[in-house]
Amino acid sequence: MVVSAFDIILCLTLVWLAWHILTSPDHFKAVVLFISFGLLMALAWVRLQAPDVALAEAAIGSGLTGALFLSALRRMASVRRGERRLDRAEERYDDG
C-alpha cells in the first residue's frame, strides 16, 4: 500500500473542511463547504479503490443532500422573515 503526497493532502483538506463546516457561523457557507467535502470524500473513496461508494457519495452524499440542505435553508429563511404571515398562510392552507 503506497500513501502518496496526494493522499496526505486530500486527508488534511478533508479534516480542514470538516472543521470549517462545524465552526462556520454562516449556514449557507457551511452547506457549500459540505458539498465540496462530499466531492472530496468521493475522491478519497476512489483512492481507497471503492468506486461504488464514491459514486453513491458524489450523487447522494454531496448532490442530493446538498440540495436538501439548500432548500431547508431557504425554508428557514422564509420562516424568519415573516412568522405571522406564514401562520396565516398555513391556516389558509388547512381550511382549503
Binding site: D52, A54, L55, A56, A59, I60, G63
Partner: peptide, 14 residues
C-alpha cells in the same frame, strides 16, 4: 463494474 441501483436512482432523483 461500479454502478448499480442506488447510484442510478440517485442520478434519476437529481
Amino acid at each position: 463494474q461500479a454502478g448499480g441501483a442506488f447510484q442510478a436512482g440517485a442520478i434519476l432523483g437529481g
